[in-house]
Amino acid sequence: MNVAETTIVGKRYSLLRERLSHDIERFRKFTAVLIKNRLAFAGIVIIALFTVMSFGAPLLVGPYPSQLQRTTDNLPPSSAHWLGTDWEGFDILTLLVYGGQISLIIGFSASIVAMVLGTLVGVVGGFYGGITDLILARMTDFFLVIPWLPFVLVLVIILTPSLATIILAIAIVSWPSTARVIRSQVLTVKERQFIERSRAIGARPSFIVRKHIIPNVMPLVWAEAVLTVSNSVFTEAFLSFFGLGASGPDVIRSWGVLVNESYIHLALVQGHWWYFGPPGLFITVVVLGFAMLGYGLEEVMNPALKRR
């Protein structure tokens, strides 16, 4: 290996390192800002706590109870069953710890689907403008105005309730708000000078979208995604309360399903607060956690918001 070759390799390596270190530096700065933002940090802590609890459930409370593990139903809290037992004689605490899995899986999946749809509509409409934008924007407004709960109920009941259809239905009611936010962001990014320069040197629209528009709206997409997870968990709880949750003898009951079952089996009039109380509290805290991280992210991404 001669000298020239080593320097090229060395140069390439140092370039890579520089690039990486730039990314690492950016990431470090980003996390530092995020942690400094108390709202976002509290959100992260809540999300981490509940994710670890739900998916670490086998370690915490043992395997998901099978039909054989039923005991007396409707027991009050005791040392054996900290939160008593449900109408079928299952330990409520065990169900509660596992319940987060379904809520979180639905929340994340629905958010991903809604993000892809919303970003696509927002970017295409905002960037290409004209009649395309007019149609897409009108469509977004139309779906935005439909009251979300009746719409999602109708969708799920028509598609017959299952994990997949619930995710799809929630995504269908969630994409419009994302599309609207992304579109307005694309409209401002589009007017920036580097886009014009890029056009001037002959870049094709598809190239500009991929290399300039998407990277510039991505931070906002992330913030929107987190907020959509919050909404999805919330919506899933409502669906489950309506008896349209994913159900079956072997399906893990989500928190919403637990509240629904407690309500149907009269835990309220019997005063069994340990049955309907905790699942509702968990829904609230997780929804709040994602909302806090989402608002925090928005604040970090959008400095104009912070200065207000």
Binding site: S230, F234, A237, F238, F241, G256, V259, Y263, L268, G271, W273, F276, G277, G280, I283, T284, V285, V287, L288, A291, M292
Partner: peptide, 17 residues
Amino acid sequence: LFGYSMPSFWVSLLLIF
């Protein structure tokens, strides 16, 4: 914000309870 994050069916249950 905490109130906003609570599902309304749960708040109803708590109030009735």
